[in-house]
Design a binder for these strands. Structure first.
Length: 349
DNA sequence: CTTCTCACA
DNA sequence: TGTGAGCA
């Protein structure tokens, strides 16, 4: 297929296609003699993905990085579509928030019968901060790289400080706290290799899960094909509103900063049915005082490894999560499971 | 019909 | 982040 054919098919100009090649997003084969580009079906999917991601506002450079890690995964068409879906959801969630903010601005102007620039500015800024908080996330753990060893890593007996001590027991506690009834549908947020989701599957529950790492999802599909898996992020769960009876999440929130955790809680709320419940098990401190006291303690003991791990991972401020859950309309209960792992049970009022 | 480069917004 | 002109 020549450049004009594919351009017509995808409704873009040949010039733009060459431009994407120049930027390193595609590498079409060139015929030896003429120097003409020849495009395969795979190239079509890839370009379609590029176009969609551009349409939802993703910069060229980001698309390039995304497609690069994507390249090594197999089953291209499905992966391209999943990438597109994931970003459609993030765009959708973002638009919902912008609409809500605009509504609030309109209400304010109507009510006050005059424009208060400061307040309107505040509202507009809130959107910007939200986007920044969300865009700040990076996968410092490189899950695509470690996906095939992940289960081994978390269950290995470790010398000294072990963040994943009692891993399986804690997952069992989460299942117990959710107390799922057969036929219910649940979501495992940040499902990874599906260790939590598969427990629910065994109880006759319909499970969905999402993760930001395609490689982790491959492991999950291999181990537990019954889990519906989607590519997606904690800032835009790839699901519609009111989809689930419960959301469960374990050892995932600590990959987010505290601000990002709050966004994630709002997403939990969004996908839950009325009366739905949320169970979180993760690394936490009771509150900031507890955090600082504990860090001081470790410093005095010379526990450098534990200290650096805690500082490196984003142990949650439990009190802040609870406050946010309350304002989102949840009633909550808490239980401390191990030295660092706490369990939060929450139910929509 | 395609290639590439250069200038332009 | 692309586009159009001009050339080979």
């Amino acid at each position: 297929m020549q450049i004009k054919d594919i351009a017509r098919r995808l409704h873009i100009t040949p010039r733009a296609i060459r431009f994407y090649e120049e930027k390193g997003l595609i590498q079409p084969k060139k015929a030896d003699e003429s120097g003409y580009r020849h495009f395969s079906e795979e190239d079509v999917w890839r370009l379609q993905t590029i176009i969609t991601l551009r349409e939802v506002g993703m910069p060229i450079e980001d698309i390039r990085e995304l497609l690069q890690e994507q390249n090594e995964a197999e089953g291209s068409l499905l992966h391209y579509l999943e990438l597109q879906r994931s970003f459609m959801y993030s765009r959708w969630v973002e638009m919902s928030k912008v609409i809500a903010t605009t509504e609030a601005m309109i209400e304010r102007v109507k009510r006050d019968q005059q424009i208060d620039p400061g307040a309107l500015y505040e509202l507009a800024e809130a959107n910007k901060r939200l986007r920044q908080t969300r865009d700040n996330w990076v996968d410092r753990w490189n899950f695509n790289q470690i996906a095939d060893q992940y289960d081994e890593l978390v269950t290995r007996e470790q010398e000294g400080f072990n963040t994943h001590a009692f891993y399986h027991e804690i997952l069992d506690q989460v299942v117990g706290a959710v107390a799922p009834k057969p036929g219910e549908s649940g979501l495992d947020a940040g499902t990874g290799t599906g260790n939590l989701a598969s427990r629910f599957i065994q109880m006759g529950v319909q499970m969905s899960g999402f993760d930001q790492s395609p490689q982790m999802l491959l492991q999950c599909r291999r181990k537990s094909p019954e889990v519906e898996t989607k590519l997606g992020t904690f800032f835009a769960f790839p699901f519609l509103e009111n989809d689930f009876d419960f959301v469960a999440t374990s050892y995932a929130l600590h990959h987010l900063t505290d601000d990002q955790k709050l966004l994630a809680l709002a997403e939990c709320r969004r996908v839950l049915k009325p009366g739905g419940r949320l169970v979180i098990a993760d690394l936490m401190f009771v509150d900031q005082d507890h955090r600082h006291a504990h860090l001081d303690h470790l410093r005095r003991q010379g526990e450098e490894e534990a200290l650096s791990q805690i500082l490196d991972r984003c142990y949650a401020d439990r009190s802040r999560l609870l406050a946010e859950l309350d304002s989102l309309g949840f009633v909550t209960e808490v239980r401390q499971l191990t030295e660092y792992v706490h369990l939060i049970w929450a139910k929509l009022r």
